[in-house]
Structures are given as structure tokens and as C-alpha cells.
Nucleic acid binder design. Structure first.
Length: 286
DNA sequence: TCCCAGGACTACT
DNA sequence: AGTAGTCCTGGG
């Protein structure tokens, strides 16, 4: 997908394989919201807006955005037309692909993804959003943009010496101690983004599993949404039900089956399935 | 009041 | 090795 520098921002010409609303509303990120014109939120320490016009999308930041950063964030390199075409060979997936066409996998900041998806367990999206927002308010940097206050998601260094007590305002319950463990492991270098990025999917996932509160599902979310591991197939309760009912796969074989069905694009298939299920709650009863 | 929500841990067999 | 119970919290 082509992205061009335009004034002090960027422009993406109308493209059926980039729908900002679907992309930011398919559950992969928690810090963007709808506006009248498009989407606004915080990532990479900046306020980012995406506004849809007749000819395409304009992307701006409160301060200048690196071309490479935004290109990577929106996963401009991958060819979603080809990927979707490939996944459409599976007739069960086909309707989900048509329905969700335009979803892209965001490549998000590692630390934010790690903490956000720890918070996400046994939780619902509105509350996850609130908790992540509160976390940023408490520990991140304040940004004022067009009369509105935003907060960056804190870097690990900004969270030195915090305890579960400091997280009490989050009201995130037992997850607080998990967050503390994650912060400690990142600060000690035990969990290190650049080394994780250099690992293959399975090795990276296993390393992530050493963090308390990070199980298979959360680890897969981190692999997919921040490490660019598209083989990852986050299996939450919805996906579990769908795989059991649509593909008649026993629970234990879901991950394996995803690899044979979708291979290196498992993560993309997962997002389309998830988006489809959330809006067509057919496969909801056990 | 009880039950559950985009899981994971712990303590049992 | 595999699996129930349990865990914080807020909304229905």
C-alpha cells in the first residue's frame, strides 16, 4: 500500500485494503477512538489522527511523524490484496474476509502491547480501554492537542520502583501483580524487544510465556501485534468457539490447525474471524 | 444475588 | 500431564 508524504503529514489514496475504522476497531488496539472525521489516538509518543476524505486518508501527528514509523504502524509493506485472496481459498473464511476487508494488522509498540494485553485477560473491551487510558494518565506524559488532553503510554523506565499499590487506581485486580512482573522483566533486560524481534515465532512466544500473567493467548497477541509474527493465532473464547464449530477442531488442536489452514497468515485470518464474529454473534452459544 | 467477560495461575489428582 | 477452582472488578 502506497503512502505519501503530504504537507506535514501523510496521505493514503483510497484503497479497499485500508479501512481505518475497521483497522482500529477490530480489537487489536485500545487507544484510538472515532471522531467525526475519522480516528484519533496516541501511539509512539504522539497524538495521531487519521481523517477520511473523498480521495483518501490524511494522517497527521501533533509532532512530526517519521515516515518509517507510520509505514510500519499501518503495515504498509504487506500486500493485503494477495493475502486476502489466498485466505479466500478457504470457503469458511471467505465471508469473514469480505466482511472485514480493509482490516490491517497494526504493528504497535512492544511495551504498550505487552501491558495492554495482560490487562485484557478475562476482561471486556470498554474496561480494557478505560484501564489502559488510566494507566497512561497516571504514568505517561501529558500532551495537549487542539484543546484536548492526551497521555502517552509510559515507557518502562517511567515505571521504575512502582508497586501493586501504585496500580490500585487502575482497579485491575489480580492483574496488577502481573503488570509489575512484566515491568521488572523489561527493566532487567530479561525481556528485551530487540532480541525478541530477532527470534523466530516459537522462541519469542516461549520467552514471553515466562512473564507472569502471560499465557498462550496473550503471548500470541504480543507476537502478532508488535513483533510482526503473522503465524501467531491468538485463541480467545470467541475464536475457540468458532474453530470448534466451523472447523470441528478439538480445543487442543486449534493452534496446530490454524497453521495448516492459514500458515504464515494465521494472525490475519484470526483478526478477520474475530471481527466477523463480534459483529455477527451467530457462533456465540456453546 | 449471581454470573460473566477477548485468561492464567495454583493446587490438586 | 492434565484439569477444576480461583482470581479482581463492574455491569447486566
Amino acid at each position: 500500500m502506497e503512502i505519501k508524504a503530504y504537507k506535514n503529514g501523510f496521505f493514503i489514496e483510497n484503497n479497499k485494503y485500508f479501512d481505518p475504522y475497521k483497522t482500529f476497531d477490530c480489537g487489536q488496539c485500545f487507544r484510538f477512538k472515532k471522531t467525526e472525521k475519522g480516528i484519533i489516538g496516541v501511539a509512539f509518543g504522539r497524538v495521531i489522527t487519521i481523517e477520511e476524505e473523498k480521495s483518501g486518508c490524511y494522517i497527521y501527528g501533533n509532532s512530526s511523524l517519521g515516515f518509517d514509523v507510520i509505514k510500519s504502524f499501518l503495515d504498509c509493506e504487506n500486500k493485503y490484496d494477495e493475502i486476502e485472496e489466498f485466505l479466500k481459498n478457504d470457503e469458511i473464511m471467505a465471508p469473514a474476509l469480505s466482511f472485514g476487508c480493509g482490516i490491517r494488522i497494526l504493528k504497535q509498540e512492544f511495551f504498550e502491547t505487552l501491558i495492554s494485553f495482560i490487562i485484557s485477560q478475562q476482561n471486556n473491551i470498554p474496561r480494557i480501554t478505560k484501564t489502559v487510558e488510566k494507566f497512561s494518565e497516571l504514568f505517561g506524559d501529558k500532551i495537549e492537542y487542539k484543546g484536548e488532553i492526551f497521555h502517552t503510554f509510559p515507557r518502562a523506565e517511567q515505571l521504575k520502583d512502582i508497586t501493586v499499590f501504585d496500580l490500585e487506581p487502575l482497579r485491575c485486580g489480580y492483574r496488577a501483580s502481573y503488570i509489575i512482573d512484566a515491568i521488572e522483566k523489561v527493566l532487567s533486560g530479561e525481556i528485551d524487544f530487540s532480541s525478541l524481534k530477532s527470534m523466530d515465532y516459537i522462541t519469542a512466544k516461549n520467552r514471553l510465556l515466562t512473564i507472569k500473567g502471560v499465557g498462550s493467548k496473550v503471548a500470541d497477541c504480543i507476537c502478532l501485534f508488535s513483533l510482526g509474527q503473522f503465524s501467531a493465532f491468538p485463541t480467545d473464547t470467541w475464536i475457540k468457539k468458532a474453530m470448534q464449530q466451523l472447523y470441528s477442531v478439538p480445543e487442543k488442536e486449534i493452534l496446530q490447525k490454524s497453521q495448516t489452514l492459514f500458515g504464515e497468515y494465521s494472525g490475519i485470518a484470526q483478526q478477520f474471524l474475530f471481527y466477523y464474529l463480534r459483529y455477527n454473534k451467530k457462533v456465540h452459544k456453546s
